[in-house]
């Protein structure tokens, strides 16, 4: 499965690439790299610099009158102050979705890797298959599933988990469920890659040594699946915290995340300095979470 390719497997690189055989080849690698690297430099790295510049524009300018780069660092605290609730909400929702996804994704990955036998590949295709349909169309399908007239809401009302007028759509529940759903495969695939290499005999050894199943899981399975767990968590959390589609389609402005604010800053309000500052704050926050988490999880295999 091609989607597995970016999962760290630890054996991606050959020991050493062969040295250039003669002078004729000295420049060949650079020639091969040039077009791709130039593209990434021009359209990935350079735009980031431009975005950094835009975040320091004089906020009193506008798209029509032009912006002046005045190193207005004040844009950052201003933006943070104005949109603090959306900012914290992004990480809160992404975190809650992550917990849900772990609760669902770990058993799924473990079952496919260790228990599925010859059905392994088929089940793996089943994990990826939902992504074959358009992201937006799938998210809209949740509108139907969670609709006020749908059977899920009906059932929850019947068992009094929801009041007679209670709803799921346009609530935080719907947004978190949507986030969980949309990024779950990104969590499951790297986890699967780690768990697939887990030697079942280690668990048998643990139980021979009188470890309870829970203890064997904590002491053997969990540490051995750590690289996949870390990679999967990151692949889940990064897009989930920057997402604004679920909040827009399944929520209301009360559930808006920072992505919604950035989207409207650039495309509706045309306030580029603020949008750029918020983009950088989002990236900085994600990087901080990622590196803090990596340090805690204590694995270097991901980067």
């Amino acid at each position: 499965m091609s989607a597995l390719a970016h999962v760290p497997t630890g054996s991606g690189q050959p020991a050493t690439p062969p040295a250039a055989r003669s002078g004729r080849y000295r420049f060949l690698p650079y020639l091969l790299l040039l077009p791709g690297a130039a593209w990434l430099f021009l359209f990935f790295a350079l735009p980031l610099v431009q975005l950094a510049a835009a975040s320091l524009y004089d906020p009193s300018g506008s798209l029509a009158t032009g912006y002046a780069l005045t190193w207005a660092f004040g844009n950052y605290p201003d933006a943070l102050q104005a949109y603090w609730p959306q900012f914290t909400r992004s990480f809160l929702y992404a975190g809650m979705a992550l917990v849900l996804a772990l609760l669902m994704g770990y058993p799924l990955a473990y079952a496919i890797a260790q228990k599925a036998g010859r059905w392994k590949n088929l089940l793996l295709v089943c994990v990826v298959a939902p992504m074959f349909t358009s992201f937006l169309v799938r998210t809209l399908a949740w509108k139907t599933i969670l609709s006020d007239n749908g059977w899920i809401v009906g059932l929850l009302r019947d068992v009094h988990l929801l009041g007679p007028d209670g709803r799921l759509l346009a609530t935080p529940v719907a947004v978190v469920l949507g986030l969980t759903y949309n990024f779950l495969p990104f969590l499951v695939l790297p986890l699967y890659a780690s768990l697939e290499r887990l030697d079942y005999r280690l668990l048998e050894a643990a139980s021979d040594l009188y470890a309870s199943p829970l203890r064997a899981f904590r002491k053997v399975t969990l540490p051995l699946s750590m690289p996949g767990l870390v990679a999967g968590t990151l692949l889940f959390f990064i897009p989930a915290s920057g997402d604004y589609i679920n909040a827009e389609l399944l929520g209301t402005p009360k559930e808006y995340m920072i992505g919604n604010v950035i989207d409207s800053a650039f495309l509706v309000r045309l306030d580029y300095p603020q949008g750029a500052a918020l983009s950088f704050l989002l990236m900085a926050a994600i990087l901080a979470v990622v590196f803090g988490y990596l340090r805690k999880a204590g694995t270097d295999e991901v980067l």
Binding site: P47, I238, P239, Y244, F266, Y272, A276, S279
Partner: peptide, 11 residues
């Protein structure tokens, strides 16, 4: 994040 790549290219 895709959002950052999108907005930076726009800028």
């Amino acid at each position: 994040p895709e959002l950052v790549m999108g907005t930076s290219l726009l800028a």
